[in-house]
């Protein structure tokens, strides 16, 4: 399982995410939320509206693969992509993150972070970004 860092959690809980699912035949759908909660180091929960649940229920049921990136200005300041297995618990989308990628433009675009030692990921973040989460 992947290890979501404090910086990643701060962006996700502070500004939410753009969450992508797809049917088994590859037709994508997206819901956008403005907050999230982090249960532990790899489980992220998103509270959805009834309409958002209706929009993605069939996809998540037939194909639990979910991808998401931080919302708002996090789309550029927190250049990560998270992937994992999603399930709906009532109106909560629970994602067990198992892959984390850097989407920072440049030579590191697509770098898989979850396979690096945790200390190296922290070093990666602190050497590249001046913030530890969204602006207050």
């Amino acid at each position: 399982m992947a290890h979501v860092t404090p910086r990643m959690k701060n962006w996700l809980t502070g500004l939410g995410a753009h969450i992508a699912v797809a049917s088994k035949s590859g037709i994508p759908a997206v819901v956008v939320v403005d907050s999230a909660t982090a249960d532990d180091d790899n489980t992220i929960r998103f509270k959805l509206s009834e309409k958002q649940v209706a929009l993605i229920r069939s996809q998540v049921t037939e194909n639990p693969r979910v991808a998401f990136g931080p919302g708002g200005i996090g789309s550029i300041r927190a250049a990560y992509q998270f992937k994992g297995a999603g399930r709906l618990e009532d109106n909560i989308l629970v994602v067990a993150v198992d892959e984390i990628y850097s989407t920072k433009p440049g030579p590191e675009a697509g770098l898989r972070l979850d396979v690096l030692p945790y200390e190296q990921v922290i070093q990666f973040e602190t050497s590249r970004w001046l913030d530890n989460g969204p602006p207050k």
Binding site: A20, V21, V30, Q59, A79
Partner: peptide
């Protein structure tokens, strides 16, 4: 605005990038 682009593999593995 900055946007997110979502695509998917043919077998349903989604991908989302700012």
């Amino acid at each position: 605005a900055v946007v997110y682009l979502t695509t998917s593999s043919k077998n349903g593995n989604p991908n989302v990038v700012g």
